[in-house]
Design a binder for these strands. Structure first.
Lengths: 238, 238
DNA sequence: CGGTGGATTGAAGCAGCTCAACTTTTGTGG
DNA sequence: CCACAAAAGTTGAGCTGCTTCAATCCACCG
């Protein structure tokens, strides 16, 4: 594997790009990567940065190279729901629409490979496989969204929190396929609450209970170690 | 509009097909429709028919010609969440996957235009615009799913029920773009409860309150008339 | 008619929310 | 490195909205 990664015709940026194989760029030929490479810019943003504003025409798209991005929906009265988390090497943005009704915000320090709407459209025209990749990611996100609907609609508070920890454990490390035993909760308690449809107090109580039960440990409110993965899965309701 | 609908090169089936323009087949040329037409079968199924079983390799795909289809996710302990409703002229099925982890069940009498996996794949190869249509529908469903996550996670019971009525009013009539003033709730109370993450009793109480407030009327527990659309939207939390 | 499945209504219990006090962590300046 | 302030998280106590359990009502159909 990775035989072609040192091919000199692949742009230097893309050679080292973590999104190269898992993300949408894996659909591109070296010459196409070169072309796209000329139109991309790397960006590193601090936590809290607004990446896409809901309802506002977006300036472009991006691949996530590292970090976690929150997708947020807002109600007129200020209530908010986090409708998804995105990790490397996900594609970020809403194709075929002027604007999206979900906002995107960096939950951690996030590194991005950004490009314009027209650059993407140009690449799609030249490489139909690219639209296929985008399509597959959309379907994967749809599956994820429906999974989470199950969590939001049917699970109890403690099941929700356990499910959230499993979600993080499965995604924070883009390289490994399975669960990470130790990882950082990059979200604040308020964000977790908005993701789970709970209050910060209930989230905190549920985490404390998991710790008291010996299922996990938590250091400085951020670093989680899973001590008993079976117990955690059971606590998540499956 | 509809100038080409009587073109004799379009298969008779498709000429009258309600899914023709709004659905994915709108992406096809008459000759392609002819070709697909030879590989499709119409089917009419009664309420309750299992159309797609979760986790089981699906035999094929379909367009919904009329009726309502429930998308259902199940937990090991039997709890279930309806993760979406599909109306004419939606495409039904999960492209690019052997099986889906959501099941599909007819909520009303449903008329379908069915075709095999290979027929679809063949058409996609010949008409890239078809994949584009499928992609757009996936993105629309993703938007819908995220909208509903907001409802599930943040709204109160009565807001959920009002949101559900607005959803139905906007979709039961595939022809009009806006809300229908009068429509049938095709789902049973138990289904509504599974869609909203509530119990049947709470759904019933919320409906009764909307009726008592003069916002809607309900005949024989099934036919709803919206008397005050503004009040209903306000009750839905927007 | 009577019977059956679905819907409504009532009363009591409890899971998660609200309000409030306290603790831990983080950031800043001496 | 410590002192201090601000922000974030935890814990407790009481309250409330939804669920649970149970009785009744209603539409439909042989």
């Amino acid at each position: 594997m990775r035989l072609d990664i040192h091919n000199s015709t692949v742009p230097a940026l893309c050679q080292a790009c973590e999104a190269r194989h898992g993300g949408i760029c894996g659909a591109l030929e070296p010459t196409q990567l070169q072309q796209l490479g000329r139109q991309t810019a790397r960006r590193e943003v601090p936590p809290g940065t607004q990446l896409i504003a809901a309802g506002v025409p977006a300036d472009g798209y991006a691949n996530i190279l590292s970090g976690v991005v929150k997708l947020i929906k807002l109600m007129p009265d200020g209530r908010q729901q986090i409708v998804g988390l995105q990790f490397a090497p996900d594609f970020l943005g809403r194709p075929f629409a002027e604007s999206s009704d979900v906002g995107a915000e960096a939950a951690s320090t996030v590194r991005l490979c950004t490009f314009s709407r027209s650059a993407l459209e140009q690449m799609v025209r030249q490489a139909p496989a690219l639209e296929h990749r985008l399509h597959r990611q959309a379907l994967r996100e749809l599956d994820d969204a429906r999974d989470w609907m199950m969590t939001l609609g049917q699970k109890s508070a403690s099941e929700k929190v356990a499910s959230f920890l499993l979600l993080l454990a499965a995604h924070v490390d883009p390289l490994t396929g399975g669960y990470s035993a130790t990882f950082d909760i990059v979200l604040r308690r308020a964000d977790i609450a908005d993701f789970l449809g709970l209050t910060i107090e209930t989230v905190s109580r549920s985490l404390s209970r998991l710790r008291r039960d010996g299922t996990i440990t938590i250091e400085r409110s951020r670093t989680v170690t899973i001590l008993d993965i079976d117990a955690l899965e059971a606590a998540a309701g499956r």
